[in-house]
């Protein structure tokens, strides 16, 4: 495997008395695609949110390319620019056009040349099939379109790691595919990604490694074929069974 770009050591996250994540450790190699699955409430999303310091952590250490990600750090904004995140609810800025949604951070935060970023943004929009929507407002887009714009917005910052937090969970079934195809494309390009999802066949297709998270810890991890076909733990077996249906006829 390549060198590690992201490492998490003994991460502990608590909300008051409630422990959400306990002693979670793993590392991610450059270009690796990690899919995190697990029952709802197991801390998958919280784990992602800790990685770009949207959540302060109570123990352990997260390092991006050797630099510590700390929610109190002075250069936090600089670190966050290197970690892109896409949310379940898209979170486009409703008062800005598609293009401005994409341009605002590269231009204002990274101080890059507007025309240069715009050219890149248009190219990416073209790739996700949305160049015709560049001047549209988020309210005029379908869920799947919004999510593709959100992905382009994250990509334009040139992040080294991309986090996807259940990005298709709020979408109508027929729109899930168009978003997943974009992410599959990014995997082919060799982007480093951590993906939280409930789409098991997608997970199987895209993951280099699958993490099964339960009760605040990584219970099982492995190659997708191993995990989905031969889960080692009873909890993982139980979880995977919830996606299967017995024939009723």
């Amino acid at each position: 495997m390549n060198e590690s770009i992201l490492s998490v050591e003994h991460l502990t996250k608590r909300y008051g008395e409630n422990t959400i994540l306990e002693d979670v450790s793993f590392s991610v190699a450059r270009g690796e695609v990690i899919v995190i699955v697990g029952p709802s409430g197991c801390g998958k999303s919280t784990l992602l949110r800790c990685l770009n310091a949207l959540e302060p952590i109570q123990g352990g250490e997260i390092r991006l390319d050797g630099e510590t990600v700390d929610s109190g750090a002075k250069d936090l904004t600089r670190l966050r620019q290197r970690i892109g995140m896409v949310f379940q609810s898209y979170e486009l800025f409703p008062h800005m056009s598609v293009l401005n949604n994409i341009l605002i951070a590269p231009v204002q935060v990274q101080k890059r040349d507007r025309e240069e970023v715009k050219a890149e943004a248009l190219e990416l929009l073209e790739r996700v099939g949305l160049s015709a929507k560049k001047d549209a407002y988020p309210r005029e887009l379908s869920g799947g379109q919004k999510q593709r714009v959100a992905i382009v917005r994250a990509l334009c910052m040139h992040p080294e790691v991309l986090l996807f937090d259940e990005v298709t969970a709020a979408l109508d079934p027929e729109m899930v595919r168009e978003v997943l195809d974009v992410i599959l494309d990014l995997a082919r390009e060799g982007k480093t990604m951590l993906i939280v999802t409930h789409e098991m066949s997608f997970a199987r297709a895209i993951a280099d490694r699958v993490f099964f998270l339960d009760n605040g810890g990584i219970v099982e991890q492995g190659k997708p074929a191993d995990f989905f076909d031969h889960p080692q733990t009873e909890r993982a077996r139980q979880f995977l069974r919830t996606f299967e249906f017995e024939s009723v006829k």
């Binding site: 949207l54 600089r78 949310f87 979170e91 990274q110």
Partner: peptide, 9 residues
């Protein structure tokens, strides 16, 4: 949070 995730202050 979405703005913070994009690196905004």
């Amino acid at each position: 949070e979405s703005a913070y995730a994009l690196g905004m202050s």
